[in-house]
Design a protein around this nucleic acid. Structure first.
Lengths: 205, 205
DNA sequence: TGTACATCAGTGAACGCGCGTTCACTGATGTAC
DNA sequence: TGTACATCAGTGAACGCGCGTTCACTGATGTAC
């Protein structure tokens, strides 16, 4: 066990971790500060030693998510190596993999309605992740003839939209719904067809 | 003004309408039965004359949404006329148009976590809408050589995912985020590229 | 090493609030004669 | 047309609950001498 310092040790992070568990379980609105405090073994009032309030706690959970997400994206992009195409496809897979492995973070980031503008650290982390996604799209689009090259940001938006849609509609266990396909397969095939449409993959497999 | 019948007139629908307004404004979890009752000019207890409770009220809002959505989808599909391609593209546009015009319904249907399994009427309405989307995809996919024809359900899932992703990420006014492109343009171009990738549109425009 | 003191993380009680739900009721409406 | 009655949509008060937030406090830890 790591350093068990003053009183609790590291209550701040323990609260964030508890919040992430709760956000994953109950959704961003079902999450309560009081329950997060309880899970961390502490009185609700103790939360105010470390955060300004409920909103601030969610924002920190989202910020940590964007940091991890940004790291994964950069690692997947890998400066465009070994090829622009491979790097781009890796970022797509990384998106889905992040949503799967860090569902609490994902919800805090994209479904909590957290205000990016009100929190510079949060905005910076979100910006970095977005920049990597757009860089991957830009690098790849250089392989297209300039006259039929769509803006890289649009390109990135298409892929992000499909990824997000697949996560929301097919990667969540919603009661009364069955998933007809594995989310990973849906994304793989969807992006494959899309890239073929752009002329970045040969027209026939 | 229509028939102002017994006491309130049509409290049931007034409650659904108030709920839709509130769900649109505050999200599915921020919505409260008490506030819906208040907006309809009635005591919270009155709601229980018409609905089993909060969940049932949300489910009815979602059900009405799926009915409208199903109607719009069928109208857009139009039995595959004038062509399979045109009909398919029309369903895509209808999706986004529905999300724009009926944001409360949209949220109740896709973001409220409402349980389809527990409500046969709701499940039926949702099933009808889905069937039309898949029919549009199936009709279109018949124009592909059988050996490289993806399952119509997968095809429909790709388009639904991109549509839903665009709605969630780019058609909502989230604080601190700017939309780089009009959602309608994003969907039009995204689906165009996708269909080209399937070989359903000529490779060059 | 031992003692006095300062710090400050977390406590516990309290607050005002709005929630969903229940219950016996009331009084406007519709109907039978 | 007029009267007695039945219906039942909506009321108003009450419930137990958990929420986010505040406040004066306490007592474990760290530090100075």
């Amino acid at each position: 066990m790591a350093k068990q310092g003053y009183h609790h040790g590291n209550l701040r992070q323990a609260l964030v971790d508890a919040s992430l568990r709760l956000i994953e379980e109950k959704g961003p609105q079902g999450f309560t500060l009081s329950e997060a405090a309880k899970e961390a073994g502490v009185t609700p009032a103790a939360v105010y030693r470390h955060f300004q309030g409920r909103e601030d706690l969610i924002a920190e959970a989202a910020r940590q998510g964007f940091e991890i997400f940004g790291d994964l994206m950069e690692h997947a992009y890998n400066g465009g190596k070994p090829s622009a195409l491979a790097a781009f496809e890796a970022t797509g897979r990384a998106y889905l993999s992040f949503a799967r492995k860090f569902p609490g973070h994902y919800v805090a980031m994209f479904e909590s309605g957290v205000n990016l503008a009100g929190n510079p650290d949060l905005a910076r982390a979100a910006g970095r992740a977005r920049a990597t996604q757009e860089a991957a799209a830009a690098t790849l689009s250089e392989h297209l003839p300039p006259d039929r090259r769509p803006p890289a940001a649009m390109f990135a938006a298409h892929v992000q939209a499909m990824s997000h849609g697949i996560v929301e509609l097919f990667a969540r266990a919603r009661p009364g719904t069955r998933a007809p396909f594995a989310p990973e397969d849906l994304l793989e095939t969807g992006i494959g067809i899309y890239l073929r449409g752009l002329g970045l993959l040969p027209p026939d497999r």
